[in-house]
């Protein structure tokens, strides 16, 4: 860890102060725009408050107790976790495969580099319209294709069927999101010195060996970064839900953010919504911290 640290021994005061100057702008912004709102959210989570009236009532941990025994909330959490698991596996696998292919000097590599980043650029409105058309129960493309293939009995209203709704939403989400992982992974792959590959090839290593022994160890920090971003991005899925299922049918595609907004705006339980937000934040924090831990562990071995 101490590799490349300036002035490890005998730090002078002036030196240290200089070092803090590097941090100063970021620190000021952080202190103003993060600490205060979070403190406010924490404070309000202890009150019963409608977000409008000048009065609020202290309820202590009451809101948190309500959160803990709210089954719908934990269902929404599980729904988001389900999409996250799918995304961690399939979305990132796709991103990695594509990044590995494009990383080689391939004909048309530049073209693919550009094209794969298009889905994240697209507006959510367009994505909603197109996928609603694909999944539609009556005139949908998917049902049309299935019946041409002679699988007409599988046809259904994909987004209205509780068995398929959430997976269908997850597929849209993964399709939309793989471009992010793709460019981060590609940047990481490009960072690996080509000589290392050549040296390994000289030693007679096969493609798979090179991948295992050269690429993977060097890419671990990047993998973890992509994994953390996938978890954070997917757990907070929101606009896609609104434009496809609205959380239905029933509660089958409800996710944490839709629940928090329902509490805050729908039923005007502001303090309760703050409590939900905090619980959600802590879950995300634990999830990402354990991933970072894992990365440190992997780096050492």
């Amino acid at each position: 860890m101490s590799r490349g640290v300036i002035g490890n021994n005998g730090m002078r005061v002036k030196d240290v102060l200089q070092n803090y100057v590097f941090l100063l702008p970021a620190l000021i912004l952080f202190a103003t725009f993060y600490i205060y709102p979070v403190y406010k959210v924490f404070e309000l989570s202890l009150f019963e408050y409608d977000g409008i009236s000048p009065h609020k009532y202290f309820v202590g941990m009451g809101n948190f107790a309500d959160v803990m025994c709210n089954k719908i909330w934990w269902t929404s959490m599980w729904n988001a976790a389900y999409i996250t698991i799918l995304a961690l596996v399939f979305q990132n696998a796709l991103a990695l495969v594509l990044a590995l292919i494009v990383d080689k000097d391939l004909k048309g590599g530049k073209f693919y580099r550009v094209v794969f980043y298009l889905p994240p650029v697209l507006s959510g409105i367009v994505i909603g319209l197109i996928w609603n058309w694909i999944y539609d129960g009556n005139y949908g493309l998917l049902n049309h294709w299935l019946s041409t293939l002679g699988l007409g009995n599988l046809a259904r209203s994909w987004l209205a069927d509780p068995k398929t709704a959430i997976t269908c939403v997850a597929i849209i989400h993964m399709w939309r999101g793989f471009g992010w992982g793709f460019i981060i992974l590609l940047a990481g792959l490009q960072n690996i010195p080509r000589e290392l590959y050549e040296a390994a090839r000289m030693d007679g290593a096969s493609g798979l060996d090179i991948f295992r022994r050269v690429t993977v160890p060097l890419m671990i920090p990047v993998f973890i970064l992509v994994a953390v971003l996938t978890v954070l991005g997917t757990m907070q899925i929101y606009d896609l839900i609104v434009s496809t299922t609205g959380g239905g049918p029933g509660y089958h595609t409800e996710v944490p953010i839709t629940r928090i907004l329902a509490a805050m705006i729908g039923s005007s339980r502001f303090g309760y919504a703050c409590a939900l937000g905090l619980v959600f934040g802590v879950v995300l924090l634990v999830a990402s911290m354990s991933q970072l831990r894992l990365s440190r562990h992997l780096k050492q071995t």
């Binding site: 129960g137 009556n138 259904r156 209203s157 987004l159 209205a160 609205g246 049918p249 595609t253």
Partner: peptide, 11 residues
């Protein structure tokens, strides 16, 4: 009609 339970009104 199929799919009304998750259909937005614009659709």
């Amino acid at each position: 009609a199929p799919g009304v339970v998750t259909m937005v009104n614009k659709t």
